[in-house]
């Protein structure tokens, strides 16, 4: 469980996160949704300890994330950032190996190699493991980066818009694979509400830096909630047993 108390963050005179109080359950997929500029990525960065708040605490893994050493934090959560730095000549296997860095600090053991092999298998990257990351398509690259986060073997995986610019095939592929990670808790920023509706167990709706709604998806999300959150008429409906969100 992640316990967020009175989290406030200001930047350049404006309040980006305003007195956030949350208790985020572990296990399953927790989606952070909300309009552009609502503070979704900032919240994720702050929960991960990457942005220090002006006030408030984030309790995760038995301590305040902002008081943890980098190395300890890296054993509690892995983080997939929105944009990935390009490292020329880096192979997919080497990229995934970086996920083990917090554990081996550059000197991998047999156990580390076994975990890297498992990540490659689980994300179906065997055929690509020798390829350079820069030569992969957007979807393949994203799969490789998520495999790296998985190889970090942390109880929490934080993913900041991992589906941005992906086509429906890769979107479904990645969400199905994330769904299959039963032993991990996943906190994910999503823009596609239909994807969130079908895959999230829990949801945090952010608006103007404050929590608009939070809870189990089926309990808190309705057409009215979504319309109010995004300030446009939206309808939550079902087509052939798939939830979908349409204008309306």
């Amino acid at each position: 469980m992640i316990t967020v108390s009175n989290l406030t963050l200001r930047r350049g005179g404006s309040t980006v996160l305003d007195q956030i109080d949350l208790q985020i359950p572990d296990k399953g997929i927790v989606a952070i949704i909300g309009p552009n500029g609502a503070g979704k990525s900032t919240l994720l960065h702050s929960l991960a300890g990457l942005q220090k708040p002006d006030s408030g605490t984030v309790e995760i893994g038995g301590g305040d994330i902002h008081n943890m050493k980098e190395q300890d934090r890296a054993k509690v959560l892995s983080f997939l950032t929105q944009s990935q730095g390009a490292v020329p000549r880096l192979s997919v296997r080497d990229l995934i190996s970086f996920g083990r860095w917090p554990h081996h600090r550059g000197r991998p053991t047999a156990e580390d190699r076994a975990i890297i092999d498992d990540a490659i298998d689980r994300f179906d990257l065997n055929a690509l493991e020798s390829r350079e990351v820069e030569s992969l398509s957007g979807g393949q690259k994203q799969r490789a980066y998520i495999a790296m986060a998985y190889a970090q073997s942390t109880p929490w995986m934080f993913l900041d818009e991992p589906l941005a610019a992906l086509d429906p095939k890769y979107t479904r592929d990645i969400m199905d694979r994330l769904r299959g990670l039963k032993d991990r808790s996943i906190l994910i920023v999503l823009h596609d509400l239909s994807v969130a509706a079908n895959h999230a167990d829990w949801v945090i709706g952010l608006k103007g830096g404050s929590v608009h709604c939070a809870g189990a998806w089926d309990e808190v999300i309705t057409s009215e909630t979504l319309s109010d959150l995004y300030e446009v008429r939206l309808r939550l409906t079902e087509v052939e047993n798939q939830k979908t969100v349409i204008w309306g």
């Binding site: 960065h45 991960a48 980098e70 890296a74 983080f79 950032t81 990935q84 490292v87 970090q152």
Partner: peptide, 15 residues
Amino acid sequence: VASLGRDKARTLGLH
């Protein structure tokens, strides 16, 4: 690790 960028390196435990 640092070559991956600041945020990525920090989440991998590099100060």
